[in-house]
Every structure is written in structure tokens, then in C-alpha cells.
């Protein structure tokens, strides 16, 4: 564990708390892509099956449980509790385009051709693109509530912080995880446009609006 990974994980935790807070405070999941949230739930479930047979640390165990439980809770909030506030007609990204390639890539580029290893690899590839439906929705509506942008920023910062973590681990432990690094670069890259607007506008008190 190093400071970058710890801060990254805390940013990830923060993003989830911000999202739940947004839904409960506004009593609405307007502006949130159900598809992206469902993909994250799938990411956590497929990645964390090792909970059942591989002990790493208490920290690791608790965080994994939290991410699985909170992602399912968010799906519950969106699908049942605040269902009327979710508008599927603007959440139209075809997730088959993300699920299919992630699955086939995980069959080809993996560390070991075993069920759990392929599930892990699939989850890494899928996570890197799972934000697409959310960004697509943002693009369509052209604007977002400020609190939603804080959620996205925390999520992007989490991924960005994993990059110095890998550099640090390469230097200090000689550890390289090419699959995670490649996917992490892609995932962080997807946030660059968003970060630009967030840091230049939202943090200066302006509304998140994309140029027409």
C-alpha cells in the first residue's frame, strides 16, 4: 500500500458517498446513468470473487465488500426507490458495445486462461469503459447538476491516482501489471475532457455546461 493507492481508494469511496448523498438529498437519480451503475456492479462482482478463496488483508476485504454492497444499493435506489425519477429515454448507450469487446479481449489478453482470471481481466476491461453511458448521457443533455460533477470528478481522480501508484510500485517493488496499467490509462484518458470543464468551470462556481 502506498499513498497514491490509499488516496485513490479514498477518492473512490468518496465518489460513492457523493452519489448516494446526491440521490437522497435531491430525492432523484436524474442525470445518473443506470447503465453505468449496473456495469460497475457487474465489475465488482466479477472482480471480487476472490473474496471467497484468497485473503489479502482486512482493508482489502472490507473495501471489496463495501464496493459490492454499495453498488447494489445504488441499483436498488435507482430501480425501485426513486424509479420515477430515472428517465431511460436519455440513457441510451448500447452496453453490448462495451460488454462484447471486454469479454473477447479478456479471452485473448489475460494472465492465465482460467475462469477466475478471465473474470478478473473482464472486470478490468469493463471498468475502463463503464463510464461511457454516463458520459454519453452528459453529452446528450449538455449539462449536469454540480453534485453529479463532483461524483464524476472523484471517480476520475481515483483512477488518475492509480497511475502514480503503478509508477511507484514499479520503482519500489519492480511490479508491473500491464493489463491493469493499459486499462487504467484508457480509463483515465476518458475523463480528460470532463476534467477540463470541471477544473476550469465547476470549481470556479460555474455550472457544468458543455459548449453547444
Amino acid at each position: 500500500m502506498n499513498i497514491f493507492r490509499l488516496l485513490g481508494d479514498l477518492a473512490h469511496l468518496a465518489s460513492i458517498f457523493v452519489l448516494i448523498h446526491k440521490i437522497q438529498k435531491t430525492r432523484s437519480c436524474r442525470g445518473i446513468s443506470f447503465k453505468t451503475q449496473a456495469l460497475y456492479a457487474l465489475v465488482f462482482v466479477t472482480r471480487y470473487v476472490d473474496l471467497l478463496y484468497h485473503w489479502i488483508s482486512l482493508y482489502n476485504f472490507v473495501m471489496k465488500l463495501f464496493f459490492m454492497a454499495s453498488s447494489c444499493y445504488i441499483l436498488y435506489l435507482m430501480k425501485f426507490r426513486y424509479r420515477p425519477t430515472h428517465d431511460p429515454s436519455i440513457d441510451t448507450f448500447k452496453i453490448e458495445y462495451l460488454l462484447g469487446p471486454s469479454f473477447f479481449l479478456s479471452l485473448i489478453f489475460n494472465y492465465e486462461f482460467s475462469l477466475t482470471e478471465i473474470m478478473w481481466t473482464f472486470s478490468i476491461y469493463l471498468e475502463s469503459v463503464a463510464i461511457f453511458p454516463q458520459l454519453f448521457m452528459l453529452q446528450r443533455t449538455g449539462e449536469a447538476e454540480t453534485i453529479t460533477t463532483h461524483y464524476l470528478a472523484a471517480l476520475g481522480i481515483y483512477r488518475a491516482l492509480y497511475l502514480p501508484n503503478w509508477i511507484y510500485r514499479y520503482i519500489t517493488q519492480d511490479m508491473v501489471d500491464p493489463i491493469a496499467i493499459t486499462a487504467g490509462l484508457v480509463q483515465t484518458g476518458l475523463y480528460l475532457d470532463f476534467f477540463y470543464v470541471y477544473f476550469t468551470k465547476v470549481l470556479h462556481g460555474q455550472k457544468f455546461e458543455l459548449p453547444a
Binding site: S57, N165, D177
Partner: peptide
């Protein structure tokens, strides 16, 4: 990739 002690990152 041989010496993976499981995936320790989240």
C-alpha cells in the same frame, strides 16, 4: 506475470 500473489489492488 508469473509471480502474481493474487490481485491485491481494488
Amino acid at each position: 506475470t508469473g509471480d502474481r500473489q493474487g490481485h491485491d489492488e481494488l
